[in-house]
Amino acid sequence: MDEVKVYVGLDVHKESIAIAFAQAHTRDEPHFVGTTRYSVISLTKALAKLGAPSELSLCYEAGPCGYGLVRALQERGYHCEVIAPSRVARQPADRVKTDRRDALLLARLHRAGELTAVVIPEPADEAIRDLVRARDDAASDQRRVKQRLKSFLLRHGHAYTGKRWGPKHELFLSKVKFEDPAQHIVFTEYRLAVRFATERVERLVQALHDQTASWRWMPVIKGLMTLRSIDFISALTIVAEIGDLRRFPHPRDLMSYLGLVPSEHSSGNSTRRGGLTKTGNTHVRRILIEAAWNYRLPARIGESLQPRLEGQPQRIIDIAWKAQLRLCHRFRRLRARGLHQNKTCAAIARELSGFIRTYAQSRA
């Protein structure tokens, strides 16, 4: 790319794009160009008045419109970045927000180099990520409809005390009867909703297996599955959401990205640390928090983990076993100190993310 002469900030919405620019190598205030409709053709016509594509550096905040615009601009020779909205510095006293001001702010900060760009996934990787999130949404819907059915039965004195959703539970449901026809209709509709939701989850899980069979990140997924409590869905979620784990220079960077580090508000001699920052990717953070709970048990290679170790290099197996020994010991030690189990799980999840980054580095 040639030397950048103009930095352009775009405030993108589904129907319009506000454009502002700042001249490079100067301290002049940015200028507002105007607003155009959401169209690559209209946008490139407006950008042509500012200079050649090689002389412009564009940016806009990540939002619901996705990555279609940045890919279209890059195909036309523009250098364009998608910015993390949470990292855009805004003045606390600034209580006026307009498209014009947002575009001017982006242009100013882009020229100063104070913006943080997000990683733009490949179209194939984004498609897998969409499928992973669709399965996650389907699983959430399944939990909701199951809870509705359980609540309805409990309210009418038909509570089940055994293991739910197995053959015995289905036999129990088939024998439940209501005297009022209206209540029986409600009961039947809830049962059908549970069945449809379960079938939907199963279809999406099978689709994930089919679509990822030849995916370029499949070796990484199989490697992560050697870790305890990281099954296919968990490993797939981690890789689909984060992408190349090697883009984090240090494990601490991955921990911070996932929001697994404690917040802090220190000033002078006063040091105050709070709960987790909970920034970054919520999907992966939830997966790791749930996985951390399994390390409360002694270290062992069970029947569910043994098949996942077969065919993996010895160095990968060694990392997985080292992680299990350390995390199981640390879980017991933290609990023995009286630390709350939720805080213990957060600490274990933080260290587990470090081992995940170590594994990625071992493949480099």
Rank of each mutant, 00 (worst) to 15 (best):
S229K: 06
R133K: 13
Q312F: 00
I356P: 04
A93I: 15
H329M: 11
F152D: 10
S54T: 13
F355Q: 01
C328K: 00
A22R: 04
I319L: 11
R200E: 14
R337Y: 06
T279A: 11
A207K: 07
G223V: 09
L309K: 03
I238F: 01
A207F: 01
T344F: 01
G274L: 09
W217D: 15
R332C: 04
A292H: 05
V70K: 01
E75T: 08
Q91P: 15
E241G: 04
E81Y: 01
C65H: 10
F248E: 09
E351F: 00
W165Q: 05
W215V: 05
M218R: 07
S54W: 04
P251H: 01
R27D: 15
Y7K: 01
Q23F: 01
G34K: 01
P92M: 00
I317D: 09
H158P: 12
A18Y: 03
T161L: 14
V40C: 09
I287A: 02
R27E: 15
R326K: 12
G275A: 10
D102C: 03
R300T: 15
E202A: 12
A84S: 15
R285P: 12
R95F: 05
A46C: 09
R296C: 14
R332G: 08
R155E: 15
A18K: 00
N342C: 08
R37P: 14
N294H: 12
N281A: 06
I128S: 04
L109S: 00
L131M: 07
P251Y: 02
G268C: 03
I287N: 01
E179W: 10
S57P: 07
Q147Y: 07
D244R: 00
R87A: 14
L204E: 14
L254Y: 00
K163R: 08
G280H: 02
